[in-house]
Amino acid sequence: MTPQQARDLVRSVFGDGIHAEVTGFPGGNLSLALCGSRHSATVDGHPDTGWAYTVDPGEDDGFTGHDQAADTLEEALRAIHGTLTE
């Protein structure tokens, strides 16, 4: 999955109401920072190994890990959809 494909998937799940910053890494991992009007989320992962995500991460959570996991990026995005679109 490319960063552009990830952006397209975010748009497909959320429409235009969510701001997404997508960073791709040489190994194929992606990192997404998503911002809604009142909430934010981070999603990190790779299509082959799965996706981990956190909604409303604290400033000190930086790189300490995520509290939720999903097999696909779409599954992760749909799991956080309700919170980000409040």
Rank of each mutant, 00 (worst) to 15 (best):
T2K: 01
T2W: 06
T2I: 09
T2C: 06
Q4M: 10
Q4G: 03
Q5I: 02
A6L: 00
R7A: 15
R7Q: 15
V10G: 04
V10I: 01
V10T: 05
V13N: 02
F14V: 02
G15Y: 05
G15E: 10
G17H: 13
I18E: 04
I18A: 06
A20L: 01
A20E: 04
E21I: 15
T23A: 11
G24C: 00
F25M: 07
F25Q: 13
G27Y: 00
N29L: 05
L30A: 08
L30M: 00
L30I: 08
L30D: 07
A33C: 10
C35V: 12
C35D: 15
R38C: 05
H39I: 01
H39N: 06
S40F: 03
S40Y: 06
A41Y: 04
V43F: 03
D44M: 07
H46A: 00
H46M: 06
P47Q: 02
P47V: 06
T49K: 09
G50V: 07
W51I: 03
W51R: 00
Y53I: 01
T54I: 08
V55C: 00
V55P: 01
D56S: 04
D56F: 08
P57R: 01
G58P: 07
E59P: 15
E59W: 13
E59N: 13
D60K: 08
D61I: 12
D61V: 07
G62R: 12
G62D: 12
F63C: 11
T64W: 08
T64S: 14
G65S: 09
H66F: 11
A69F: 10
A70L: 12
A70F: 03
A70S: 11
D71Q: 15
T72V: 11
L73W: 05
L73V: 01
E75S: 14
A76M: 04
A76C: 06
L77V: 11
L77A: 01
R78H: 11
R78S: 12
A79Q: 07
A79K: 02
T83Y: 10
L84R: 06
E86K: 11
